[in-house]
């Protein structure tokens, strides 16, 4: 594989990364969100592997494998189980003005492109082009957390932010030191497990996973006190 092709592949994956971030933002259905999330994980793994190949960085192969197992398989599987057990897998989450969210998302992307451009010029790494996209993906993940009503989709938004950071790490520094990465990976895993437990807890307490309902309950409780 020539360097140019590796570069192109990385660029292509970056573009797909951006696409998955937008797709996550646009999905109505719980399961579709999850599918796109899993896709993003696989994409990350592939990117890491390609960069590892391109830079002959062997630690990155391990990162790629971890991304594949953790982000592409384990987390989606866990979340899928949670969703199935909570019987929300056929639920539809109404979006708050989908087209407007999309426009805001485009603005956010444009903005990150605008601010990253000067930094990119100074960087000489082969993955520099994807920096702007990684930044955009972080912001889009946050946007997802803001616009979503359901706790599960918010968590996926959180995990998407983490994915984007991972992607940025590959892009900016050809990956973090392996130890740090493993640490983060476990953090994420544990966070996901805790979230999973929380969902059940929340469900039994409030009989709903909607953040609004929870707020209402909390406010109501405050009133009582």
């Amino acid at each position: 594989m020539s360097a140019a092709l590796v570069q192109q592949l990385v660029d292509g994956f970056a573009a797909l990364m951006l696409l998955t971030s937008f797709a996550l933002l646009a999905q109505h259905r719980m399961l579709s969100v999850l599918h796109w999330f899993a896709g993003q994980g696989l994409l990350l793994a592939a990117t890491a592997a390609i960069v590892a190949y391109g830079t002959d960085n062997e630690e990155l192969y391990i990162s790629a494998l971890m991304a594949l197992l953790l982000k592409g398989m384990l987390l989606p599987w866990l979340l899928r189980r949670v969703i199935r057990q909570l019987h929300v897998h056929r639920e539809v989450e109404p979006l708050m003005n989908g087209s407007l969210t999309m426009l805001v998302a485009l603005g956010v992307t444009l903005f990150s492109f605008h601010i990253i451009q000067p930094i990119e010029k100074t960087s000489l790494l082969m993955t520099r082009d994807s920096m702007a996209i990684a930044t955009a993906c972080v912001l889009l993940g946050m946007l997802m957390m803001i616009t979503r009503k359901k706790a599960i989709t918010q968590v996926i938004g959180f995990l998407a932010v983490e994915n984007a950071l991972f992607f940025a790490a590959i892009g900016a520094t050809n990956g973090m030191p392996l130890v740090v990465e493993i640490g983060i990976a476990f953090d994420v895993l544990i966070a996901a497990l805790i979230f999973g437990l929380f969902f059940f807890q929340i469900r039994t307490t409030f009989d709903s996973l909607e953040v609004d309902t929870m707020n209402a309950h909390l406010i109501h409780k405050d009133d009582d006190e």
């Binding site: 660029d11 970056a14 573009a15 951006l18 696409l19 937008f22 485009l106 992307t109 444009l110 492109f113 082009d129 994807s130 702007a132 996209i133």
Partner: peptide
């Protein structure tokens, strides 16, 4: 999607 195409053209 097409706007993303435009952006990724400039970005990548």
């Amino acid at each position: 999607i097409s706007f993303l195409g435009l952006l990724s053209y400039y970005m990548l």
